[in-house]
């Protein structure tokens, strides 16, 4: 039997709306209004950092030189630190009693909101560096815009992260240039990396309803508004590196909506193993 509407309990939301309309007051949004979109946006920021940080940390102990090993670990540490801030804020605003760890360790792949680019396997060191550069050039523009966010918490995290990411970009751009304009082999590897990854760059600049809501609330920029600056940075670096971006390449998408590559499932299987195998244990 279908359940019948409860005849005795008044519809509180409707009553409240009626009362507000009657009172003549202008509706003031609650501090965390637009919550689902805001949480979604923060997860996108945090998940990019988490998954890229995971990938970079896979190099620990395996990098081509000790100096590089140490530099990569610093980068992974920055990204994990940023992820803790973004996901921590997402959890606060969500208000369901979760924390950054719960978001990182207890969501399944479909609930992750990172770009496909950052979950792609490390490949050779050229793929890792090129992926880093293409993402850094986007990340820095996003963070610069977020420093002017209407939400002071977002602006504060962005200001801290921007300093770190400015250094990531300086490093990754310089290495792309040096290896592009290095030996025949290093150039060939960097070109192959660029060709392979280019199809995953378009997703960074796609706007959707979440982005529109964030832009309307002046919390975050529309991703499409960052594209021109990104293209300028990338074109200058690739030119100096004597590398050429493919033209008219197919662009993959889906990460922002939770439709990922097969790789993310394996990342999470590894990352979340202890939390899943021993539910509720404290570490």
């Amino acid at each position: 039997m279908p359940s019948l509407p409860d005849m005795t309990t008044p519809n509180l939301t409707a009553l409240a709306g009626q009362a507000l309309a009657d009172s003549g007051h202008v509706a003031v949004p609650a501090p965390d209004a637009g919550q689902p979109e805001f949480v979604e946006f923060l997860q996108r920021m945090g998940d990019n950092c988490l998954i890229l940080g995971h990938r970079v940390s896979e190099w620990c102990g395996h990098a081509p030189a000790l100096e590089e090993d140490i530099a990569l670990a610093n980068q992974a540490l920055d990204l994990i630190g940023q992820c803790q801030l973004w996901l921590g804020l997402a959890a606060d605003i969500e208000g369901k009693g979760r924390d950054a760890d719960a978001l990182a360790y207890l969501r399944d792949a479909g609930a992750f909101r990172n770009l496909l680019l950052v979950e792609l396997p490390n490949g050779d060191f050229g793929v890792t560096l090129m992926r880093q550069f293409l993402f850094d050039a986007f990340h820095i523009e996003m963070l610069r815009a977020l420093k002017a966010s209407s939400d002071p918490r977002v602006a504060e995290i962005a200001a801290k992260a921007e300093k770190e990411v400015a250094y990531h970009l300086e490093r990754s751009a310089d290495l792309v240039i040096r290896l592009g304009d290095g030996t025949d082999e290093s150039r060939a590897r960097m070109q192959a990396a660029l060709t392979k990854l280019w199809s995953y760059t378009g997703e960074m600049f796609l706007d959707d309803a979440v982005d529109q809501a964030m832009s309307d609330a002046r919390i975050a920029p529309l991703p499409s508004s960052l594209q021109a600056a990104w293209e300028k940075t990338v074109a200058a670096v690739l030119d100096e590196a004597t590398l050429a971006a493919p033209t008219g390449a197919w662009q993959h998408k889906g990460g922002k909506k939770g439709i990922h590559t097969e790789h993310l499932g394996y990342i999470l299987a590894e990352m979340q193993f202890l939390q899943r195998a021993y539910p509720g244990a404290k570490w």
Partner: peptide, 22 residues
């Protein structure tokens, strides 16, 4: 430390010897 040139030596030094203290 080891580095291919001076510019990279400076960057590596930031990562190795200051762990990025500003």
């Amino acid at each position: 430390l080891h580095a291919p040139d001076a510019e990279m030596a400076i960057r590596n030094a930031r990562d190795v010897y200051t762990r990025r203290n500003e």
